[in-house]
Design a protein around this nucleic acid. Sequence first.
DNA 1: AAAATACTGGTAATCCTACCAAAATGTTTG
DNA 2: CAAACATTTTGGTAGGATTACCAGTATTTT
Lengths: 180, 180
Amino acid sequence: MDARTKILQAALGLLAKGGAQELTQPRIAKAAGVRQSHLTYYFPTIHELLQAVAKYTLEAMVAETQVQQDPGRRAPSLLDAAIATAADKRRMRMVLGLVTTVDRESKMKPQMRAFLKEIRQGLTRLAQAGGLEGTTDQVAFLHAVVVGQGILQLARDNEEAREEARRILRMAVDFLRRKS
Amino acid sequence: MDARTKILQAALGLLAKGGAQELTQPRIAKAAGVRQSHLTYYFPTIHELLQAVAKYTLEAMVAETQVQQDPGRRAPSLLDAAIATAADKRRMRMVLGLVTTVDRESKMKPQMRAFLKEIRQGLTRLAQAGGLEGTTDQVAFLHAVVVGQGILQLARDNEEAREEARRILRMAVDFLRRKS
DNA sequence: AAAATACTGGTAATCCTACCAAAATGTTTG
DNA sequence: CAAACATTTTGGTAGGATTACCAGTATTTT
């Protein structure tokens, strides 16, 4: 595999497993099985590396969202997809790491906005497959509830939080359904 | 002022202003006006320091929420409070840093759960003052939407995101009002 | 005054980023 | 094919930042 890709994959794995503070050259190099000096060859500065990781992570998240509506797989219900996403610790760590990185590296904001649009396009299709109209605000609403519940669930990390997430997401989807 | 408190306040300021990667001994020491070696006196390891900062931050956030419903101040409407909170970058950086820290330091989870309960008690009172019933699920719902919109707003950081947050939070509050 | 506590100044060890010269590998061109 | 060239990889290092110590001094408490 491409060394560059190996590096980005390893970085993404570290980000999903341990959060943004894992993203140092030595750790990524070890995880990717390449030399540290190799990292600066592909990404001359740590800034560039972080930006590349952020971009790669964004793309990975878009791809994952699209898999959920892959025609090959039986489409999960909108509610189930929302519950699963909010409960996915890896994904939520990616969100945390991404937002942290973007907040720090303001150069990335335009890219973040573009990729959020993509995420929401995927969400729109999911919503429409789930019988919703899929208006901008409906999708934004759903997005916020999933992210919010996901973050709060990661912070608490117990069964109570998981149950709450199921109830709240059901409320949200029902609300949007009635509103359509 | 107590040196320990000075240290924690300075750390909180750095966290709110620049995110979790600002939390190093030299920077905190400089911001607090104490020696670096002083930090290890009060907090022998950086772990203990981070945990103390997290705890202090949690307490500060609870306190801020309670100020919003201080009888001395004219109570802001529930919607205005939600919009202001989601738009408050400092607060959202605290949330990001906190959740990141707690996710890493699992010892802190019980504390995080306890403080989330406190936050929600404050939110419950706000909701009731805003004419809602204030049930557990209503509050949890509102909480999730505010956190989710806040995070997404921090990530995008433009007027479009701010407008969206206003619309979405209005939707959420209206929904809860109708449901009461 | 004695004991406990708080603070100072300095340092050793580690980690991290950025750089570089040279070797290995791959690609193009005469 | 072979030489010239470009790209990738290696191994090592300099310099800066950070954490964790420690011995000693100042300050407060008892």
